[in-house]
Design a protein around this nucleic acid. Sequence first.
DNA 1: CATCAATCTGACCGTATGGTCAAGTTGAGC
DNA 2: GCTCAACTTGACCATACGGTCAGATTGATG
Lengths: 208, 208
Amino acid sequence: MANQANRKRAPSRIQQRNRKRILDAALEVFSTSGFRGSTVDEIANQSGLSKPNLLYYFPSKGAIFNELMAGLLDTWLDPLRALDPEGEPLAEILAYVQRKLQMSRDFPRESRLYANEIVQGAPRLHAMIEGDLNQLVEEKSQVLQAWMDAGKINQTHPKHLLFSIWSLTQHYADFDAQVRRLMVNEDPFDAAPEYLETLYRRMLTPKG
Amino acid sequence: MANQANRKRAPSRIQQRNRKRILDAALEVFSTSGFRGSTVDEIANQSGLSKPNLLYYFPSKGAIFNELMAGLLDTWLDPLRALDPEGEPLAEILAYVQRKLQMSRDFPRESRLYANEIVQGAPRLHAMIEGDLNQLVEEKSQVLQAWMDAGKINQTHPKHLLFSIWSLTQHYADFDAQVRRLMVNEDPFDAAPEYLETLYRRMLTPKG
DNA sequence: CATCAATCTGACCGTATGGTCAAGTTGAGC
DNA sequence: GCTCAACTTGACCATACGGTCAGATTGATG
């Protein structure tokens, strides 16, 4: 336990490279099969390392998963953190939607990894969700509510508004297999930005 | 193979009861852990049958899954099938949204089972999707397009419109674990119908 | 180029998993 | 209540899985 490579200081170049390889392979595998459906052998194969060597860098399958999740959750919330209470309300929300959609496009595996975890009841995510996410959502919901009370955007349920943004943007990554099978001659991401922009503009722009 | 119980005619009461039990248990387990993450022992335990007894009724784990999926896909598409080209466009769409939302509320396990499968790339669903779903989506997209061309609802991308309806309604079932953790004092399904009604009404009602 | 820690591997272990089988028990029709 | 098929089970098997270990190889440092 004490001589685990990942707890030494000053990680060597080899260590940096291999840990990255492993995490990338694990992202590929976990996002495709979920935690329980993924095997260490698969991750080892995908990363080009032998299984014992992989387990030299990480103590267990669960440890790989946890490190992956911890890193993911942070970047995952960045777009919402960037929602500026001082900005122009509608523009802020529309920009948030586009940032989130861009993340689905650029990091579909991360999105699917997260989706897998939540769909299965988030068994290994309790602590993380309870903390950061809850607080951030509470905070930004109040910002949205304030904008509504000030008449800057239409009245609606702030949390449901956030849920809908997550749902719509992540759908293009999470349900990619379905979406692409139903849009054979067209890249879904071509029309998605405009579709979502229109949707939220019409929904939130105050009447008159 | 020839003496499998499930291929005999006139299924006995015991057979009907046990097959139902197994499928219900399998729905519970598969929707929670996905196909690869689920075990036959779990399903057997959940159903109250012994493992060999379970395998007396179904030849394999995959066979259980397939039968479950085949049954699911049909009911899953019913709400869309009911979209009436002769009805009042906006009302038809809003009613479809509510039917779909109701299905998420009444059959969350079915929704999660489906989500699990699609998120993981729909490895065991190709044929089914290619056939029924594709045709139905094509047909209903044309209905929506006709309504737009006639000025009955706002112009928008018909397939993205369908995707958004699926996404938003199924989100309450698929991401239930997250949604409920972020709405502790409130049942998400209380406000969801009104939220979605408002969203699509504002988005689709023609100006003027 | 000697040394020692860091890195890597084949062989291995205990357990879990999908599935089988021979033999037992139960239920329906006579 | 006899009979035979329908149903049920404990014991078992081969493979897959997560993880370990002794020892080999490699790379950095003097």
